[in-house]
Measured scan of single mutants.
Amino acid sequence: DEFHFHWNGRDIRVRGDSEELRRLIEAIKRGELSEEEIERAIEILER
């Protein structure tokens, strides 16, 4: 699976399928994380 979302003017695409990944992306979409937490998560996910 590939998750695709927009954040902070960026087009983010992440491959993978796990419950943890889904929860993280939902939290990002709901605005539950700080900008710094989101940046760090995206860096890890894009590897």
Results as ranks from 00 to 15, higher is better:
Leu45Tyr: 07
Glu36Ser: 14
Gly31Leu: 06
Arg13Trp: 06
Glu2Cys: 04
Glu2Trp: 04
Arg40Ile: 09
Ile12Gly: 00
Phe3Trp: 15
Ile25Asn: 02
Asn8Lys: 14
Leu21Asp: 15
Arg23Trp: 12
Glu2Tyr: 05
Gly16Ile: 08
Lys29Cys: 03
Gly9Tyr: 00
Phe5Met: 01
Trp7Lys: 01
Glu20Leu: 08
Val14His: 02
Ile28Tyr: 05
Ser18His: 09
Glu39Ala: 10
Asp11Ala: 15
Glu26His: 13
Glu36Val: 14
Leu24Lys: 01
Trp7Val: 09
Ile42Cys: 01
Arg13Lys: 15
Ile12Gln: 00
Arg13Thr: 14
Arg47Met: 12
Glu43Ala: 15
Asp1Val: 05
Ile44Pro: 04
Arg23Ala: 14
Glu36Cys: 06
Glu43Thr: 09
Glu2His: 15
Arg47Val: 13
Arg15Trp: 06
Leu24Trp: 09
Asn8Ile: 02
Glu43Tyr: 01
Glu37Leu: 10
Asp17Pro: 10
Glu43Pro: 09
Ile25Glu: 03
Leu33Ile: 12
Ser34Leu: 08
Glu2Asp: 15
Phe3Val: 03
Glu26Cys: 08
Ile12Leu: 03
His4Ser: 05
Glu35Ser: 14
Ser34Cys: 07
Arg40Met: 10
Ile25Thr: 05
Glu46Pro: 06
Leu33Arg: 04
Gly9Thr: 01
Glu19Phe: 06
Lys29Gln: 10
Leu21Thr: 14
Ala41Arg: 13
Phe3Ile: 05
Ile12Phe: 08
Ser18Asp: 09
Ile44Gln: 11
Glu26Arg: 10
Trp7Pro: 00
Gly31Arg: 08
Glu26Ser: 11
Glu37Thr: 07
Trp7Ala: 04
Asp17Ile: 08
Ile28Gln: 02
His4Trp: 05
Leu33Trp: 12
Leu33Gly: 03
Val14Trp: 09
Gly31Ile: 04
Val14Thr: 04
Gly16Phe: 05
Glu35Ala: 14
Asn8Leu: 05
Ile28Trp: 04
Asp1Pro: 14
Ile28Met: 06
Arg15Pro: 15
Asp11Gly: 03
Glu37Gly: 14
Lys29Ser: 10
Asp1Tyr: 03
His4Tyr: 05
Arg30Ile: 08
Asp11Asn: 09
Gly9His: 01
Asp17Met: 08
Ile38Arg: 03
Ile44Gly: 13
Arg30Lys: 15
Glu26Met: 07
Ile44His: 13
Glu37Tyr: 07
Ala27Gly: 11
Arg13Asp: 06
Ser18Phe: 09
Glu35Gln: 13
Ile25Tyr: 06
Leu24Ser: 01
Asp11Tyr: 11
Gly31Thr: 03
Phe3Gly: 02
Arg22Tyr: 10
Ile12Arg: 01
Leu21Pro: 04
Phe3Lys: 01
Arg13Phe: 14
Asp1Arg: 02
Arg40Gly: 10
Ser18Gln: 08
Phe3His: 04
